[in-house]
Each structure stands twice: as C-alpha cells, then as structure tokens.
Design a protein around this nucleic acid. Structure first.
Lengths: 188, 188
DNA sequence: ATGTGCATGTAACTGGTTACATGATTCG
DNA sequence: CGAATCATGTAACCAGTTACATGCACAT
C-alpha cells in the first residue's frame, strides 16, 4: 500500500489529475513502473474518502473535464508521518526510489538519515555478493554470473551516487523551506 | 506470470526444492525480490500438474523430508520458447535481471540480442531523462531532481556494464555447450 | 521440555493489471 | 467521418503476501 502515499507525495508539489500522474511517472517506468489507471483512479478515490485530498473539477477549456486533486493538511501530515519511518533492510531499489521522490516532504536531516541507511545496506549487499564470488564462484552458471556482475555494478553505482548526494547535502547551508527550491540547481 | 518461467529456469541448472529456491534468491532480494513460500509452493505444484517438472521426494537424512523438483524435457522446451521472445520496450530492471538469470537457457546469439536490445532501450531512457533536465530542469523539486540524477547514474552504470558484457560475449569463441561452463571465469 | 532451524503447505486477503465502457475534442 | 488523444471510470481477474498450521530434527 505504498501507492497511496506515493501519490500523496506527488500532490505536495502541485495539484494533479490522474492522467497527469501517469504522464509524470511515464519517464520512470523502467525504474518503478507507473501504475495503471485501474489502480490510480481508485487510489485517488480512496484518498478523497479519507479526506487526505480534495478535488477541483476543471471544466475543460479545449479539453475534456479533468479532476485535479489537491492535498489537504491532514494528507500532508499523514505523508510526513509515513515518510519519516525508516525502510526495512530488504528494501528494494523500487521502494528506495519511491521514497527518494518524496524527499521534498522530508527534513534535510531525515533525508540524510535515509541516504546513509541505504548506503550501509548497499555495503552489506556488496559484501554478500563478493562473498558469493569467493565461495561459490566456480559453481555458478552463466546467468548467475551475469546477474552477480550486474548486481555488483548497480550496487557500486548506487554507492557512488549516495556518497555524492550526501556530500552535496552536507554542503547545503540552510535546512528547509523555500530557499531550498533555489539552491538545488548546482547538484548535477 | 513470470515466476513460473523463472523457477523453471532455475531448475535447468540443478534439481531444487522450494526451500532451496528461496535461499538461492535471498541474495538478490533487493534487485528482484524473492517470492514468498505462499507463491512458491503453489507455483511448483502448477508446474508439476502441467508436466513441466517432476518431483523426487528425498526422505531426509538428518533433515526433514524434502521434495526436489526436476525439469522435464517438456519444461525445458517451454522455457526456451519463452526466453527467446523479446521483452517489451518498457521492461523494468527487475524483468531484465530475471531474464538475465536465465541466460544459460539462451543461445549466445539470443543472449547478445537481448543485451543489445536492452542497451538501446537504456539509451532511449537516458535521452528522455536528459531532455527533462533541459526542458523542465528548473521546475523540478528536490525529490524529482534526486530521482532524475539517481536514474541517470543507474542508467549509465547499466549502459557501461552492457558494453562490457557484450564485448566479453563477442570475445567468446565457442557458441554453446559444456565448454561454456569452463571459460566464463575470466568475466570479472 | 523448549526453542530454533528445516521443510512444506493452505486460506484469506490485497494490490494491481487487463479489459472494457464512456465521452469530449481535435486533426486529417 | 473516422482516427487519435485526452480523460475518467468499473469489473473481472490474478499474482503475490500475510498469517496460519503442521511436523521433524537437533541442541540446550
């Protein structure tokens, strides 16, 4: 049940319709897989029912009527509560990326904590993969070797990225607010 | 319904029990997420019913009785058929890794084709991500920037890896068979 | 005897996909 | 006029998880 929170997170930036959300997520299809309308619309309805969002039906100017959803204060609260609780150690890449996208709803300290936690988990995984190389190295078949190498490559890329991100984050002087929006450009 | 084929693929290497499969997949939890017993055992039963595998109940020597599953010729055929059909353009990282693990059931040419296809898809994604940087670069919030950077890092790592893998593959002289098992060591 | 690890299994539930149905608008 | 895009929605279905139930073996 992360889709509910994820959608909520997207709405913190700006009001969106179901259609918008899918478009926005389209470019990240391969990383996290964008949800189908069949799950997206019911999710939106559920959020509405729990008063975490409100609707604004916009009669279409040159396009059919669209319903843009706006997050409520209750919704924002709920989201903050959720986004601050740590992810389990077996968290998937997808889960991590989804959380990462909600960074805007996280304090700088909270974000840093998340990244550090991820970094240490990645370290554990790399160690495990390298151990496989040592112990079972000879017994693996082609596919398993390829996957091991691939996993190692991804893990190392992620590790590098996390280091960079954390460096950048610690260089950021101000902790929160609107100034944030401004000073992000230099990231990379 | 990829789990069925995936399990079938794992069984091409050696007979395994449900318990074994989960152990084997445990180290790749974060990449593809290992299935729970609640889905694994029914899957095994389904394969059995369709005559794609057979069981050998091994009365436990120092451990409880275990059922090791062996792939049948029919199963191997089914798998080859499945593994050779190309993946859609929106294929997730998870789907790619699962396919990659079944490389052993693929001809060298088939494997190369898969890797090349993936490489070109990655290129498309990178282009899309870089286009976002150009057009909406200023409008993105913290989370979206982080995810974009992260995605770019992963995509570039994958790209590099694919190049290396394809290089290595083209350096391999023999096309198939038992010699394969031997000459893989030098990969990295 | 009690708990921990090995090992298999089932039932209820849930999150999500697929397929379908609807309708307005715009372009060729 | 028909096709494509925008836009929303529902119902049937399915894959997978969670939680539960069982039982053997071994160590404390």
């Amino acid at each position: 049940m992360s889709l509910r929170h994820f959608v909520l997170g997207l709405l913190t930036q700006q009001p969106l319709s179901g259609y918008d959300i899918r478009k926005r997520l389209g470019s990240l299809d391969w990383l996290i897989g964008s949800p189908s309308f069949g799950s997206l619309y019911p999710t939106l309805h559920a959020l509405l029912e729990r008063r975490l969002v409100t609707v604004a039906e916009v009669a279409g100017e040159g396009s059919p009527s669209r319903k843009t959803y706006i997050i409520t204060e209750k919704g924002a609260q709920e989201l903050r509560k959720w986004v601050h609780q740590p992810m389990g150690p077996g968290a998937s890449l997808k889960a991590f990326v989804m959380r990462l996208m909600l960074a805007g709803s996280l304090s700088t300290a909270g974000l840093a904590a998340h990244l550090k936690q991820r970094r240490s988990q990645i370290a554990v995984r790399r160690a495990a993969l390298e151990q496989i190389t040592g112990t079972q190295g000879e017994a693996l078949d082609l596919g398993q070797r390829l996957v091991r190498d691939y996993a190692l490559a991804v893990a190392s890329a992620e590790s590098t990225w996390l280091d960079r991100a954390l460096d950048w984050l610690s260089d950021q002087p101000r902790p929160t607010g609107a100034a944030q929006r401004e000073s992000i450009r230099q990231s990379l």
